[in-house]
Design a protein around this nucleic acid. Structure first.
Lengths: 194, 194
DNA sequence: ACATGTGAACTGCTTCACAGCG
DNA sequence: CGCTGTGAAGCAGTTCACATGT
């Protein structure tokens, strides 16, 4: 979140920013901002605040965004398509290098630079020309089996859009995006607001 | 998450489940499960565990899912399309009642039951035939202005796919789904794993 | 014997408040 | 003087451990 705020400041040509400003824009408190950042180092100048470009560079460094990351998408359905064609990822350092599907109707489709590949080619690709991150945009049924395959191939980072609980060893990070769960959170909010 | 696990148990015809089972499936601990549930009431039977259908009903009640919710989507781009055409929401109690866009090429398109409407009609629709939840799937530039309009019309729940920090009064809940942020989290994980 | 519900202990995160430095 | 960096205090969420009920 800090990186997003800082990039907007960079775009505006703002050179310096205080923890209080960052807090207001991010919806937190200045103490929170200072504690968050101080976990990683002392980036500010007393009496002045933080240098916007310097702090942005530090945050990028912390997040590991000095390099680019290779991302493969499994599942060429609606979500897979939306992700594959979204420009924003490239801008943020994530290159989509392959898309896979199991359906004969999808395999071979040309999506811009990408050709939808047969998911049977996945295991081979994962060892020959491995991505860093695998995105899962497939139905729940096959999801755990696919996680197992991907983990076996040595992948350590998965972004899942599957509405089910997936399991993996501790050295693999699975981030799950579940829109139904977000909506249920709003349902709870609406029901208990007075 | 509990609701998802319980629904799978229901589908399997499992009648009863222990906090320990729920914990294993959900990746937490049995104490965690019991504390979570006990916040809302005493749903279990000592020596037995929880009745799957009873607990599922309780969780649905807690989440406010005894009724259905009306959802409007603003933005008929890739994400808006994926959401509008996704079957899963209807199954979980969320009915998509309208889709809006500003582009003349999109307005009037027929998406299944839905016709893409002019976003200028939004403010009128929000008062005449208000949805409960508004989903934002539009570019960052216009997002805050749209939040303001939606809030002014009395909406209290927003699900945003906009990669920017949005602000609203305390009586409005904004849930943000930001895929770039999830990928950055994975980047951090990959960079700091050893 | 089994598994819940819950005070008590513990852990980690947030907020406070101020010394220290530009 | 302004704003950071940080111990200390405060708060919230998690884990422990056991009394309690079936």
């Amino acid at each position: 979140m800090y990186l997003r705020l800082l990039e907007r400041c960079e775009a505006n040509g703002q050179l310096t920013i205080s923890s209080d400003d960052l807090a207001k824009q991010g919806g937190t408190t200045s103490a929170q901002v200072r504690k968050d950042l101080s976990f990683f180092g002392s980036f500010g100048k007393r009496g002045l605040g933080y240098s916007v470009p310097e702090l942005a560079a530090e945050v990028r460094e912390i997040l590991g965004l000095r390099r680019r990351w290779r991302v493969s998408i499994v599942g060429a359905g609606k979500i897979g398509a939306a992700l594959a064609q979204y420009r924003g990822f490239g801008q943020r350092g994530f290159d989509i290098v392959a898309v896979y599907d199991s359906s004969p109707e999808k395999i071979g489709l040309q999506w811009g630079e990408l050709t939808v590949r047969d998911v049977n080619a996945l295991d081979g690709d994962l060892t020959a020309d491995a991505p860093d991150i695998v995105v899962l945009a497939i139905p729940s049924e096959n999801a755990q089996a696919l996680v197992d395959r991907v983990v076996a191939a040595g992948i350590h980072a998965i972004l899942s859009f599957v509405p089910a609980q997936l399991h993996a060893p501790a050295d693999v990070s699975i981030k799950t995006v579940n829109m139904a769960m977000e909506l249920e959170g709003l349902s709870y909010w609406l029901s208990n607001r007075d």
